[in-house]
């Protein structure tokens, strides 16, 4: 009972925070930070997918940026080269990415642990190379310009301000869906697979199937983010989809606290702000800083930064409450 009430309170706080985030652009904030907020939203979509896969299910992916890229290139190529309606292109991209993830999940989830991590790393590299080398379609290393804006009826998403709402609307939908899944029968199955695959099978969980489903879902999230990404920038090149981009997503997930849906916003925001607003001032220290973050967080707070801090706070509060209760 208590847990339920507390759950509702947490829910209310989250909704309130999100409303603040949504309303934020109306302030002075608007002019300066809308673009940053859009990137945070897109990164959150990627990160929450990886959190579901890695944090909850315990399956490492070091090639997640590849799915982001597949969505991006599908949208770019279909809407620019073939004049397909951008929304339809986005849908086709998501479906294709999902189908691709589905097909490769069969061989790839025969692997576990270190092998799986290496295989996803290799897969990410392969796809990145294809983006670069299939120049006739993708524009090669130079990329493609002049990708159309998204529009609905007569309404064109031609300003960052409009796209801000589009991105965060979809992002919130993804977060809510993820949250609902995590708290469901399927979510328990995913966490059970993380806990012990043998035990999960023993209670009748088809671990191969659940891994496949969550892999496909996270790939589709990434693909949708990729589509929005190119319709925002109106440009696509291979650079944001390589190995380091995949590592970035891992960094965000680690900072967000791997097994935490809402932590994904925290992780994406923290790293995005760090890289766009702080690290740019200091030249190119980004790799050093990300490497350090990964090592330090995983050594001292293996459950991830956001969750680790949350648990630390809960412990402190408990101690405080106990002291209050004593006469």
């Amino acid at each position: 009972m208590l847990a339920k009430v507390r759950g509702r309170a947490a829910y209310a706080v989250i909704v309130l925070l999100l409303l603040l985030v949504m309303l934020a652009p109306f302030e002075w904030f608007l002019a300066r930070y809308t673009t940053l907020m859009i990137f945070i939203g897109l990164n959150t979509m990627l990160t929450v997918g990886l959190c579901l896969l890695m944090g909850y299910t315990g399956q490492v992916s070091l090639g997640h940026a590849a799915f982001f890229g597949i969505g991006a290139y599908f949208s770019a190529i279909l809407s620019k080269t073939y004049d397909v309606n951008p929304w339809l292109a986005m849908g086709i991209g998501a479906a294709a990415t999902g189908a691709f993830a589905y097909v490769i999940s069969y061989p790839i989830f025969r692997l576990r642990g270190n092998y799986l991590a290496m295989a996803t790393l290799g897969l990410g590299l392969i796809i990145y190379i294809l983006f670069r080398e299939l120049g006739d379609y993708t524009g090669g290393p130079d990329g493609m310009y002049g990708i159309p804006y998204l529009s609905a009826g007569g309404f064109v998403f031609d300003t960052p301000f409009k796209r801000y709402f589009l991105v965060w609307g979809l992002c919130l939908a993804m977060l809510l869906i993820s949250q609902n899944i995590v708290r469901s029968r399927s979510g328990r199955a995913l966490r059970a697979i993380h806990g012990s695959e043998a035990a999960a099978e023993s209670v009748g969980i088809n671990s191969a199937q659940f891994k496949m489903k969550i892999f496909v879902l996270s790939a589709v999230y990434a693909s949708l983010a990729g589509s929005l990404f190119v319709h925002h920038l109106r440009f696509v090149g291979p650079q944001p989809f390589g190995f380091l981009a995949s590592v970035m997503v891992v960094v965000m997930a680690v900072v967000g606290g791997l097994a935490s849906v809402w932590g994904a916003i925290f992780g994406a925001a923290a790293i995005r702000i760090l890289s766009d607003k702080v690290l740019l001032e200091f030249g190119e220290l980004d790799l050093i800083v990300y490497g350090l973050i990964l090592m330090v967080v995983m050594i001292f707070l293996p459950q991830g930064l956001f969750v680790g801090l949350k648990e630390g706070y809960a412990r402190l509060r408990l101690r405080y409450v106990r002291r209050e209760a004593e006469p």
């Binding site: 890695m54 315990g58 490492v60 070091l62 642990g113 270190n114 991590a117 380091l244 590592v247 891992v250 680690v254 030249g283 190119e284 220290l285 980004d286 790799l287 050093i288 800083v289 990300y290 490497g291 350090l292 973050i293 990964l294 090592m295 995983m298 050594i299 293996p302």
Partner: peptide
């Protein structure tokens, strides 16, 4: 999983230092 992430972190760190 933690060890994968830690050694990946080390990898990126070393790469960053070398590039810097």
């Amino acid at each position: 999983v933690s060890l994968i992430i830690i050694t990946i972190g080390a990898s990126v760190f070393i790469r960053g230092v070398a590039g810097e």
